[in-house]
Design a binder for these strands. Structure first.
Lengths: 145, 145
DNA sequence: CCAAACTGGTTTCATTTGTAACCATCGAGA
DNA sequence: TCTCGATGGTTACAAATGAAACCAGTTTGG
């Protein structure tokens, strides 16, 4: 009978791996900053780009729009971001970090880099390169459909 | 100010990629067999190993034990698996697919292989090798702590 | 032999998530 | 200009998830 080897089935391995990494990493920002994953992504997006709309955030991070909506609402409640209505299109809001939000972002960035660094130093140079280019290749393949 | 480039931040890319792949793949078994992801994993584990306990299933697939418990309950409800109490330890149950469960498994395996095949043919030989060895390296790194 | 700690597995409850419906606004075309 | 379909974003409700409590059975140490 034909069997599927889960240990070598890529979609499964990939998910399990990403889930483990993401869970580990989420401890970092959840412990230190009390953020959920969608909130972390929102903070990161805004910190990186300065200002974004909810739709843009959703595109960048592949989050469902309700996730974005809730994350934004929560960060606003904490006064980590503000909304500014678009002048031409009144459906759109431009989101931007407040001083407090920026402070949190500045605190978060080194944590993230350290986490990634720790992860990558566990790999050899070759392995690291393989990982990075493999991910890039698959991303490319998916985006083309 | 120090910025984190999300597009090149590995944990983030990895998760986004795995999520996209997994979602795409889940359409396959959800459409054809009406399975959730935990149920699919349970079916796959049992199909591959013949018989497993709930704890073993959890270990193999990194599922929380409540997920396993529910998936098993649902597959049992469908009469796709049966439980046999262990002779020596009455807390333990050995799970095994029924004829119907096996039939579903046999239907599923080619779908999974086709999905993976389609995915991989979008990559060059080098890229494919990079992906696979990169994932393996990270898995290894994580398992060592 | 017995209490205490532990393990396999289930259940309960609160939280998170996704789907779908929704509201407001916008843009294209008759 | 008016209508209709699309779009940005929120909300309501149902389903999936995780933490913790739980039950039953097992092991260990005194």
């Amino acid at each position: 009978m034909e069997i599927l080897e889960l240990e070598s089935f890529l979609p499964y391995r990939l998910y399990r791996l990403a889930d483990a990494v993401s869970r580990e990493f989420s401890k970092v920002y959840s412990d230190r900053l009390g953020l959920s994953r969608p909130e972390w992504r929102t903070l990161s997006g805004l910190g990186q780009h300065g200002t974004m709309t909810a739709t843009e955030l959703g595109k960048q991070s592949a989050m469902h729009k309700t996730k974005v909506s809730r994350a934004v609402a929560e960060l606003e409640r904490r006064r980590w971001l503000t909304r500014t209505p678009d002048e031409n299109d009144r459906r759109v809001e431009h989101l931007m970090l407040t001083k407090a939000g920026l402070a949190a972002y500045r605190e978060m960035v080194p944590l993230a880099k350290a986490f990634e660094g720790d992860l990558l130093t566990k790999l050899s140079t070759d392995e690291r390169a393989a990982m990075v280019s493999g991910v890039a290749a698959l991303e490319g393949a998916l985006s083309k459909g």
